[in-house]
Design a protein around this nucleic acid. Sequence first.
DNA 1: ATACATGCAAACATTTTGCTTTGGC
DNA 2: GCCAAAGCAAAATGTTTGCATGTAT
Lengths: 162, 162
Amino acid sequence: MSKHHHHHHEGCQRPEPERLLTECMARARDAGLRRTKALQDVLSILIHACQPLTLGDISGSEDLLSDADRATVYRLLVKLEQHGLIRRLGLHDRAAYYIINLPGEHHDYLICNGCGRIERLDVACPVHALEKTIAKTSGYQRIYHELEFYGLCPDCSASNAA
Amino acid sequence: MSKHHHHHHEGCQRPEPERLLTECMARARDAGLRRTKALQDVLSILIHACQPLTLGDISGSEDLLSDADRATVYRLLVKLEQHGLIRRLGLHDRAAYYIINLPGEHHDYLICNGCGRIERLDVACPVHALEKTIAKTSGYQRIYHELEFYGLCPDCSASNAA
DNA sequence: ATACATGCAAACATTTTGCTTTGGC
DNA sequence: GCCAAAGCAAAATGTTTGCATGTAT
């Protein structure tokens, strides 16, 4: 579970989650995964989530989330990440965070060092040009990036000043 | 310790490490820390390091690093980060990485998903403009950012193709 | 003299693996 | 039927904390 209590997922605005799920399941099958209940659960949860989720968030958790075993979810996450269907984020929490990786969708995040809240930024990411340069000059393959902003949210700033 | 064996620190190019250490010790004293051997060791190690180091790297490690206890180093790292003398990076390793935080110095990193090698990028960071915008519009205080590029280094690309 | 820092050891949280059983193909 | 996936349980890894002692101020 994540360090800070989650502000229960306000419904996500991703359109047509059903269709996305079908597409992701197809991509997963292409990658060699079997069409199993746990896989469908994990993908569905990640598609519906507005914010990055931890392994603890996804498996055996409070709400209506998956009741699949942690080890199962863990192994699914590893495979899904390897095949590029999801992405892992190294936020400053102890646990790793995961997000669905939809073609053409990319987000950066703004995280509060006080309360741990995670906000998705809907701004144009200014890093793509540099990413291309690095791809050319570094010799690295399959490059992507991760960008997070950290700071103190208004609430925490206030209580911090007190 | 970090996931992948370290390619023993090639000497770092930071100029005047002695002076930097003195300055950092002064900053640390200003922050209320006592002038102790362990503190000096930790700061010195981080100043001399070319790349981010884990708690395991810093404490009780192989080379000429600090012989201070892990818990001691851990508590120092926490305090130093709180007071802004060092920064913690959430790279995709299980362990947290730390770097010295020198005024005016900022680096982004390029990390290999295969072997875990970490390269410091010496390019102009394209994020500062966006950072200012976010500072104005979000209401967050004390904003900073973390940017990493991930990919497969030439060696790992080669063995991956095989 | 006092309060903070240290060292040792134990507790924690999260990830990772082994192995047997189940179920998709 | 075969091989991948699930479930359960245990090991591994890295972090954090408690407490008695040492030490900078």
